[in-house]
């Protein structure tokens, strides 16, 4: 595990993502950068893994349904000591374990995702399981805004509200983009908060890069007396942290070369200052 001062530090996490994306010559950097602060707050303040065990029976469940952001989660799992440095330097090498989309065979990743809309329903099942067993486990599912085009999101939302799954929280990474363009241009979503509220969720919208705001919203949700499932809409910036990647959807697909890698590292350092 890394030293406490560095753990879940957003700039360090982004640097880890850049390093592994460069090592593996991989895409989806923008998808990982929009969820860095969300993951940092969840892992630092909320997710409970007794004994630091990713498979502890009474753990909280964190389901990354938008598997495209998995590099951000890998970076967090390294901070937890669940992934070794070699896994990062050898990312995408032949015979390696870490894939470009999340795979449940990696301890700490609850589902195999990337085909969108799956993790949401699995998470609803986990929350229902915890409710049936009467445990206090929480289930968090992080979905992309483009991902909520998928039907099972809304099927599962009906079920979660009908069964008062107050232990279930969906976090929507509203970065405004999906693969082929802006969400507004592809399939307009308008108010995501209003949509989830109309499905019976307790919902709120926050700045998904403001760790204090994220932490406060999650804490308030769990303190709520409402029986409803929760929806946290996080307004984010795809590619956040490296200005030339921000809101530039080509970083869904583009690989780093030596020049852009150096520029990205330098931009990240500048952002901190």
């Amino acid at each position: 595990m890394m030293s406490q001062s560095k753990i879940f530090d957003s700039t360090t996490l982004r640097k880890t993502v850049l390093d592994m994306a460069y090592a593996g010559s991989t895409v989806h950097i923008g998808c990982a950068f929009s969820i860095i602060e969300l993951l940092a707050v969840l892992y630092r303040n909320h997710l409970r893994y007794p004994g630091n065990d990713p498979l502890a029976a009474c753990r909280d469940y964190f389901v990354l349904s938008k598997g495209h952001g998995v590099m951000a989660q890998y970076a967090c799992l390294r901070d937890l000591g669940w992934l070794k440095d070699e896994a990062f330097s050898h990312y995408f090498s032949d015979g390696s374990d870490l894939k470009g989309l999340s795979d449940s065979r990696i301890p700490g990743l609850e589902v195999t995702s990337g085909s969108l809309g799956h993790g949401f329903s699995v998470g609803v099942g986990m929350a229902m399981g915890a409710k049936l067993r009467g445990t206090d486990q929480k289930t968090y599912v992080l979905v992309g805004d483009g991902e909520i085009n998928e039907g099972p999101i809304w099927e599962g939302s009906l079920f979660a509200a009908h069964h008062d799954l107050k232990n279930f929280m969906v976090i929507i990474d509203e970065n405004g983009f999906q693969a082929m363009g802006s969400t507004q241009d592809v399939i307009k979503l308008d108010s995501i908060q209003a949509k989830f509220e109309s499905f019976g969720f307790e919902a709120t919208t926050i700045d998904g890069h403001n760790e204090t705001a994220i932490d406060g919203a999650i804490t308030r949700f769990w303190e709520s007396d409402s029986k409803s499932p929760k929806a946290l809409i996080a307004k984010t910036i795809k590619g956040k942290g490296v200005p030339f990647m921000e809101n530039n959807n080509i970083w869904h697909y583009t690989r780093l070369d030596p020049e852009t890698y150096a520029q990205a590292l330098s931009a990240l350092a500048d952002c901190v200052q």
């Binding site: 609850e110 329903s121 699995v122 099942g125 986990m126 229902m128 399981g129 915890a130 099927e155």
Partner: peptide, 26 residues
Amino acid sequence: PAQYLNAGIAEQNMVGMAAGLARTGF
């Protein structure tokens, strides 16, 4: 009665939920 769940007319979600329930030991 406590072991019966009508998941509604939503098969995709039902199968995903079944996976989640199996992961919690059901």
